[in-house]
């Protein structure tokens, strides 16, 4: 069997993984609130600080 066959199977599996990741992304609702996530990442996590005060 030629090496190209193995390569192709590998490349399609990798692509299929990405397709799976894409579907998972959409299903989990990551694109439902585009603004929220972009802002949340900038918040400092101060929860522990304030509790120990």
């Amino acid at each position: 069997m030629s090496v190209i066959v193995i390569l192709l199977i590998a490349s399609i599996s990798v692509a299929a993984l990405f397709l799976g990741a894409f579907i998972w992304n959409i299903k989990s609702g990551q694109y439902d609130d585009e603004y929220g996530s972009s802002v949340r990442i900038l918040f400092d996590d101060t929860s522990k600080e304030t509790k120990t005060k």
């Binding site: 439902d32 609130d33 585009e34 603004y35 929220g36 802002v39 949340r40 918040f43 929860s47 304030t50």
Partner: peptide, 22 residues
């Protein structure tokens, strides 16, 4: 967004809160 996400800190009986800004 920040305040409403942090609602559980205001009252312990709120287990979680998540804003959908859009």
């Amino acid at each position: 967004l920040w305040l409403l996400d942090n609602l559980p800190k205001l009252n312990a009986d709120v287990i979680s809160s998540k804003v959908n800004f859009v």
